[in-house]
Structure formats: structure tokens, C-alpha cells
Simulated scan of single mutants.
Amino acid sequence: MSLTIQDLDAFIETAIQRFSCGAGEINSEFYVNLRSEGRQRITQSYVDSCIALCNSRGIKAERNNDGLNIYVNLERCALNPNQAKMFNVAVSLARANGTFF
């Protein structure tokens, strides 16, 4: 699997959904298997490029065997305009429910 900006958007949007449905938790964790789609070898260069892509959006990534652990912190990651609107609504709902202050 080649990690894409669309994947990062999906992680951020899922984190926003988790935030709005949960107890106001701003951190979410994900796992990406870098061997999917038949990739035979995972080079350090490939791992570094995936981590750099994550870092470009303020998302932390660490290698975990044949994959990456992805950590999304909604207070630190770079949101696109739609995600910013989604997060604003989620924060409003969490505040109304008393789960985020």
C-alpha cells in the first residue's frame, strides 16, 4: 500500500467522528500495513517517505514491523477546510453534551 493524502484525510475524518461520538478524545491511533497489495520488500526509504507524508500534515507515524502506527492529534494536525468545519461542529456537539471543555 502506498500511503496517500487521501488516506491521511480518512484518518483525520475518522478521528473527528470518534471525537464527536466519544468522550471528547482528541487522539486517535491507526495502523497501516505497508506489505499490502503484494509489496515484497519494505525499504527504509519507503518507510521514511510515508512518515514524511504524515509529518507534512502534522500527523505522527512510527514504524511497527511491516507497517506504521499512525497517531492523529486533532489539536495539532493540519485540517483541510471541510475537516475544519467538521471539527468545529464536533466540538460544539461535545461542548453541548458536556464531554469537552
Rank of each mutant, 00 (worst) to 15 (best):
G58P: 04
S45T: 15
G67C: 10
G24D: 09
R41N: 15
Q83H: 02
G22N: 10
E62A: 12
G58R: 09
R39C: 11
D66C: 12
E62F: 09
E25H: 06
Q17N: 15
Q17T: 15
I51A: 13
N88A: 05
E13R: 13
C21E: 11
V89H: 09
Q83S: 07
A96K: 11
I12F: 04
A10N: 13
N97P: 06
N88V: 07
Q6C: 00
S36V: 13
N80Y: 03
N82C: 02
Q40M: 11
S92E: 13
G24Y: 07
M1V: 09
F11A: 05
N97D: 11
V32P: 01
V47D: 05
L74E: 04
A78F: 10
G98Q: 08
G67I: 14
F100P: 05
A15Q: 05
N27E: 06
V47I: 15
N73P: 01
G24S: 06
Q40F: 14
I42S: 03
I59F: 04
F19G: 06
R39H: 15
V91P: 11
N97T: 07
L8M: 01
E75K: 11
V72Q: 05
R18N: 11
A61H: 03
N80H: 08
G22F: 12
S2T: 12
L34Q: 02
L93R: 12
I42W: 07
G98P: 10
A84Y: 00
N64C: 06
D48I: 04
G58E: 01
R41W: 15
R76I: 11
N73D: 15
D7A: 00
N55E: 15
N69R: 10
R35T: 13
A52M: 12
G24V: 11
G67V: 15
V47A: 10
Y46L: 13
R57V: 05
N88I: 07
N64S: 08
P81V: 05
M86T: 01
G98L: 04
A94R: 02
E13F: 06
E25Y: 00
V72D: 04
L53N: 07
G38A: 07
C50L: 06
C77Y: 02
G24N: 03
F11P: 02
D7L: 00
L53E: 14
V32D: 08
V47K: 02
N97W: 09
F101T: 02
L3Y: 03
C54D: 14
R76A: 11
I26A: 02
N69L: 11
L79R: 00
N97H: 12
L74A: 05
I42N: 03
V47M: 08
A84C: 00
R18G: 04
P81T: 00
F87G: 01
E29H: 09
K60P: 01
V91Y: 04
